[in-house]
Structure formats: structure tokens, C-alpha cells
Design a protein around this nucleic acid. Structure first.
Ligand code: FES
Ligand code: FES
Lengths: 132, 132
DNA sequence: AATAAATACGACATATTTAATCGTATTTAA
DNA sequence: TTAAATACGATTAAATATGTCGTATTTATT
């Protein structure tokens, strides 16, 4: 439980890598994949998704690559996680109106309490302070 | 990511159920499984584990069952999670001395920062305040 | 115009983890 | 002696995460 996924991990690695460069400089998928020994195809999909989410800007063609587009200090870790992985909740039923998963569930409120704390925490942390 | 497991969920349901009874009263696995519609065998293993962890006390034989043994306000959510699921970390490598998973990983420190916040949060919450 | 190197992306395959079940043994009240 | 409960390792099934493949598109370079 509470494991970060590879997708998020690779995204963080990529961001941190790009932050160590000039803002306009481009980084290719290959460069990151080679340097950190991660699967290029998988990283590519992650970077593509970040580009769709307007966190990165993609430049196509040879000598193309990615650069950071968004203001990382304006993106909460919660938003970042949710962009990559969907709604952030400890229970599947958290976002559904009715908890049909377990009849007569008695821990809905307790779970939401934990959830709110989790979400609060990740709402207060920015992507910038994590990758800086 | 960040999903609570069924084991933890069932454990919380059981605790909450027992808290609504007199302290000495016993609750059987069957009773909880039936009432909340959860797999009896799986719940049984969870309760057995909690008994080994001295959170519950088990009474064998017919008319046996479980009752709460520990002071729930003295058990942090972190300890509870770790008893049931093992070390609580967002990365597998968090508890290993050397991060061999990714060569030249550049996010060890950032990840640990997130981890520490997580662990802090769950250290401050007690089982009592979650299930009360 | 042709080539090559990069991104874009859906579909598929594999691996890992979680969840559930099975089978059998033990305990003990009735 | 029986029945109803806990104890627990082994196995199966399901879900999720991870990785790969194939193909298309873009565009700088030649
Ligand atoms: S089924 Fe929704 S919190 Fe339990
Ligand atoms: S491999 Fe340990 S934090 Fe990256």
C-alpha cells in the first residue's frame, strides 16, 4: 500500500533532470532513458502524457525533445499525481456517490478522514519543492 | 497508487464493529463476515494476524471469537499499517541501504521528503481516532 | 526529395501484487 | 463425542502495474 508507481517515479526523474538545465534546452526521451537506465518506451508515454497535461512542451522532429512548460511551484503534488494516475483516494468508493462495494460499510467516515488528511498533505506540497 | 488494501479495510471494519460492543464481549469471524458481506476466510486470516500482533485477543472453541486487547489510542496508524502490511514507504528502495533499482537515481532525496511527510502524518493519527 | 531522428499513440504481452479459496489441524464448550 | 470456533500454510484467481510492439507523424538535415 501507498506505493508510488513507476510512471510517477519516471516523471519525477525526468522533471528533476530537466530542471538542471537551461529552461529552453530540450531533453530527449533517449537521453533520460539511457542516463537513468529506464525503459525508453515507457518513459516516452509518460512524457507524452505530461505534454498533454501541459506540464511539458514537446518539440517534434530530429533534435526535438521536451522542456518544462508549467510553473512547477503552482502545481500541487496532488494535482500532479492525479494528472498521471487519476483520482487520489485510499478507497475506490471514495469518489462514488454510493458505497455499494460493501453492504452496510461502517468505515466510510473514518476512511474519508484519513483520505482528507492525505489529500491535504499532497495539496500543500508543490511539485517545485519536491524536484528542486 | 495510495490505495488501502482489503486487509486493512477488513481490519478497520472489524475493529469498528467490536468497539460498538462491550469490551469483554466476543465477536466471531462469521458474524462480521456476514454482516458486512466480506469473505470469511480472508477476514479470518486478518483477525488472526491482529491477534498475533496483540491488537486482538483470540478465544478458541465454540462460542469463541475475538475482542479488542490493545489500547487503540496508543497505536499509531503508521504502526497499525506496518503491522498488517510491512514497512510503509512510497518506494521499495526506501528501506534498503543502497538504491540499486535505478542507476544514478536523482530523486532519492525528494522521495524521502514525501515519505517522511507521509510517515509523520500516519504517526500522528491513532487507531482510536480513526475507528471511534 | 529522401533520410533519419525524434515525438505520438493504441494494442498487446508480461510480471507483480492483491484477493480469495482450499485443505487440514487444533481448541474447547456443550 | 460432536460441533463450532480459531490457526495457518498452500494454492488459485483476479486485478493492477509494467513493459513491449508496431505504426504513424513531424521536421531538421542532407
Ligand atoms: S464501502 Fe465505501 S468506505 Fe467502505
Ligand atoms: S532508486 Fe531509490 S529513490 Fe530512486
Amino acid at each position: 500500500m501507498l506505493k508510488i508507481t513507476r510512471k510517477v517515479e519516471y516523471a519525477l526523474i525526468a522533471l528533476r533532470h530537466m530542471q538542471s538545465k537551461n529552461v529552453d534546452e530540450l531533453t530527449s526521451t533517449k537521453e533520460i532513458a539511457n542516463q537513468y537506465g529506464i525503459p525508453q518506451q515507457l518513459l516516452a508515454k509518460t512524457l507524452q502524457q505530461m505534454a498533454r497535461d501541459r506540464i511539458l512542451e514537446a518539440v517534434q522532429g530530429p533534435a526535438g525533445g521536451y522542456r518544462i512548460l508549467a510553473k512547477l511551484d503552482r502545481i500541487s503534488l496532488k494535482d500532479f499525481f492525479e494528472k498521471l494516475e487519476g483520482p487520489l483516494g485510499m478507497m475506490d468508493c471514495y469518489f462514488e456517490s454510493d458505497c455499494i462495494q460493501i453492504s452496510a460499510c461502517n468505515i466510510r467516515v473514518p476512511i474519508q478522514r484519513i483520505n482528507d488528511n492525505l489529500r491535504n498533505m499532497f495539496t500543500q506540497m508543490t511539485l517545485q519543492e519536491v524536484t528542486q
